[in-house]
């Protein structure tokens, strides 16, 4: 009986040690954030960005459809007429004001869906803590110059 138990326990210990040995040689899963980057799924939805065309023109035409699609009323757009000599975006219309209130945003991505020019997209930046409430309002300046321009345009 006792011998039986002894063998059994030894086997169990051996098994457990086997697991330890097995993982001893593998690289760890833990990410040393913020010293190391976090890998994200391609469809992760983080902080918004406004995109430009290759020639530097803004994609946003100020159509305000993102504002209409936004379920939380986090977006405010005010459009204006392009100066034909020095246009901001192709066509006659551009966004004079584009603001997103991150405190309201639920990162649903409906604005992306609504955008006819793929101008507004959700990027991969997720670290959005701030010391001041006013800093949670993204204006056109911050949206056009994201810290981490690393965006996957989702096909549909």
């Amino acid at each position: 009986m006792a011998l039986n138990d002894l063998v059994k326990n030894a086997l169990e210990i051996g098994k457990a040690m086997g697991v330890t040995l097995k993982y001893l040689t593998q690289t760890p899963v833990t990410v040393e954030y913020p010293n190391e980057p976090v890998s994200l799924y391609p469809r992760f939805r983080g902080r918004h960005e406004l995109r430009r065309y290759e020639n530097g023109m803004e994609r946003c035409i100020g159509c305000m459809l993102c504002e209409a699609a936004c379920p939380t009323g986090a977006i405010y757009v005010d459009a204006a007429e392009n100066d034909p000599a020095n246009p901001t975006s192709p066509g006659e219309r551009y966004a004079k004001v584009y603001e997103i209130n991150l405190l309201r945003c639920v990162f649903c991505g409906d604005c992306e869906e609504a955008c006819p020019t793929e101008a507004i997209v959700l990027g991969h930046e997720f670290a959005m803590a701030n010391y001041d409430r006013h800093d949670f309002i993204l204006n056109k300046q911050t949206l056009l110059n994201p810290g981490m321009p690393n965006v996957v345009i989702r096909p549909d």
Binding site: D78, A79, A80
Partner: peptide, 9 residues
């Protein structure tokens, strides 16, 4: 009034 509004707003 050009571009100053969308009718639903």
């Amino acid at each position: 009034a050009r571009f100053g509004f969308r009718p639903w707003q």
